[in-house]
Computed example of a mutant assay.
Amino acid sequence: MAAKLRKGDEVIVLVGKDKGQKGTISSIDPKAGKAVVEGINIAIRHQKQSQATQGGRTPKAMPINLSNLAIVDKNGKASRVGFRMDGDNKVRFAKTTGDAI
């Protein structure tokens, strides 16, 4: 089955500590069903000092489950994603507005 969410999509978080926040997908792992969203699900990683880096506490975006994300439609609200044939092309569309993504 084709992935409903892709890299570069603007999404909103449906559940969890970051509920209601919006961000852009920076990477996706469809096999694991997870995506990394910029500015969402931030964890602090401790890095040891070396010659290349100063070290310290660095924030890092951790993966979030795809079921906890929804695409943002043109009205700024969460929407489910559907597929339809547009001529010979298979396109994704927002189910709330019916517009192609």
Rank of each mutant, 00 (worst) to 15 (best):
G8H: 08
V36L: 02
T24V: 13
D86Q: 13
R80W: 00
L5I: 14
I25G: 02
A2L: 13
A94F: 06
F83W: 09
D29S: 14
Q49R: 14
P59R: 01
I12C: 07
R80K: 04
G20F: 11
E38K: 15
F93I: 01
Q47D: 01
I40K: 11
E38I: 08
M1C: 12
D73P: 04
G56E: 07
T96Q: 09
P30H: 07
S50I: 01
M1L: 14
S26A: 04
T53D: 11
T96C: 01
A78R: 08
S67E: 10
D88I: 06
V72R: 09
V11A: 04
G55A: 00
V36W: 12
M62I: 03
I71P: 00
K77L: 08
T53A: 09
I40M: 13
V72L: 08
K31S: 05
F93M: 04
D99K: 09
K4F: 11
V11Q: 03
D86G: 00
K77V: 06
F93A: 03
G33W: 05
A70M: 02
M1W: 09
M1S: 12
V37A: 11
I40G: 06
E10I: 12
E10K: 15
D73L: 03
A61V: 02
L66F: 11
G8N: 10
E10W: 07
K90R: 15
K60V: 15
D18K: 07
K48Y: 03
G76C: 04
V36E: 11
D86A: 07
F93P: 05
R84M: 02
A43D: 09
R57D: 13
S27K: 12
K19M: 14
V72F: 07
K17D: 10
N89S: 08
A100C: 04
S27T: 15
E38P: 00
N89L: 04
I101F: 13
P63C: 05
A32F: 02
L14A: 12
K19P: 05
V91R: 05
T97R: 03
R92H: 01
N68W: 02
D88S: 13
T24E: 14
G98D: 05
A61S: 15
G33S: 06
G87S: 02
I40V: 15
R45E: 10
K77Q: 14
N89I: 03
Q47M: 07
N41L: 08
R80I: 00
G23S: 14
K7D: 04
N75T: 13
V15C: 07
G23H: 14
T97P: 03
K48W: 03
V37F: 07
D9I: 10
